[in-house]
């Protein structure tokens, strides 16, 4: 069978709704796109631990501490799970981490914003995880089996995070003036970046067309973004938060909340490395990765000595 025939067969399987599995034939471009996307997703989970870890030691109650730590742990677990899914495409985790640290692989730009008050923990859970769920629910229908299955499991946990984040916001909006101000501050900080998480408008999205053809994505950026906006605006109003968009209005005909223009200059600026925390996030990752080198070396040296392995 030549390449063309294989491609026809591959696309026929995708159109029939079959899942592609690691050992199946796939076009190189499909493998590359998935690898880029899944590794980027894994890196995002791992880098995303940092802005939340920033508050792990200052969480205000034992319950809040437990919830936050469990959430960060979930993110790390998602990272592991996604690295494994990406490894099925032929690249190992060490190499993916190297690509991240060399700037060749990206992670979600949202984590390049700082967490400056406790309400940011609420906003991240509610808005960032909320946006991620919309995207990931779609990805659970993706044509690549290991990725789709990873998404199913991850979505369940993200659902908890979203509710827990909203609970933090609701509690603070029911609290004293300082707490309300913190919550609104967090809303102002995270609203637009969370809308940007869905990526550029469909007309400007370089990867969308091919990804949709091969069902790596099954819905467009704008459609997903709108779904998130409709859900979230009402939740914000419900607890008294103001959505920081003077042009926001409800369209009765389409039943959509229509937003003002997104500042794409800001988006590209952060993507290109000029966000408030790009440098810090990467420096942190590299610092602790390097600091852990002697531990990994020791574990390998130990594993190579069979006498002690059996002793454990």
């Amino acid at each position: 069978m030549n390449e063309d025939q294989r491609l026809i067969q591959f696309e026929a399987r995708i159109n029939a709704g079959e899942k592609i599995e690691p050992k199946d034939w796939m076009p190189e471009a499909y493998r590359k796109t998935l690898l880029r996307q899944i590794s980027q997703h894994a890196h995002s989970e791992v880098i995303g631990m940092q802005p939340e870890a920033n508050w792990a030691l200052r969480a205000p109650t034992l319950r809040a501490k437990k919830i936050l730590l469990a959430k960060i742990q979930d993110e790390g677990g998602h990272g592991l799970y996604l690295y494994s899914a990406a490894e099925t495409l032929g690249v190992d985790r060490a190499e993916m981490i190297e690509q991240l640290q060399q700037g060749k692989a990206k992670y979600s730009s949202i984590f390049n914003y700082p967490t400056l008050n406790w309400a940011d923990m609420g906003a991240i859970g509610w808005l960032v995880d909320g946006a991620a769920i919309v995207n990931q629910t779609m990805l659970a229908k993706c044509s690549y089996g290991p990725y789709a299955r990873a998404m199913l499991r991850i979505c369940k946990e993200e659902g908890f995070h979203q509710r827990q984040g909203y609970e933090i916001m609701a509690k603070m909006m029911a609290g004293n003036d300082a707490q309300k101000a913190m919550a609104q501050d967090a809303m102002n900080c995270w609203w637009w970046p969370s809308l940007m998480m869905f990526g550029p408008h469909d007309a400007d999205s370089p990867h969308t067309k091919e990804s949709m053809q091969w069902k790596i994505k099954v819905e467009s950026n704008d459609k997903l973004r709108q779904r998130f906006i409709n859900r979230t605006v009402e939740q914000a109003y419900h607890i008294g938060l103001t959505v920081p968009d003077p042009k926001l209005k409800y369209n009765k005909e389409t039943m959509n909340w229509e937003i003002g223009p997104i500042n794409w200059d800001e988006f590209w600026n952060v993507v290109k490395g000029n966000g408030p925390c790009n440098h810090k996030r990467m420096a942190h990752h590299i610092k602790y990765h390097n600091k852990g080198q002697w531990v990994r070396d020791a574990a390998i040296a130990f594993a190579q000595n069979e006498t002690f392995v059996t002793a454990l």
Binding site: V46, M49, Q50, A53, A56, L57, L62, K65, K66, L69, A70, I72, Q73, G76, G77, G79, L80, Y83, H284, Y288, K291, G292, Q293, V295, R296
Partner: peptide
């Protein structure tokens, strides 16, 4: 232990240490 969050020598250990921290808070 929570201070180790995002600073583990390897991701698996980051999770393990957070897990111990969670147990102890409980």
């Amino acid at each position: 232990l929570a201070e180790w969050c995002s600073k583990g020598p390897i991701l698996e250990e980051d999770l393990a240490i957070t897990n111990m921290s969670l147990d102890l808070f409980g």
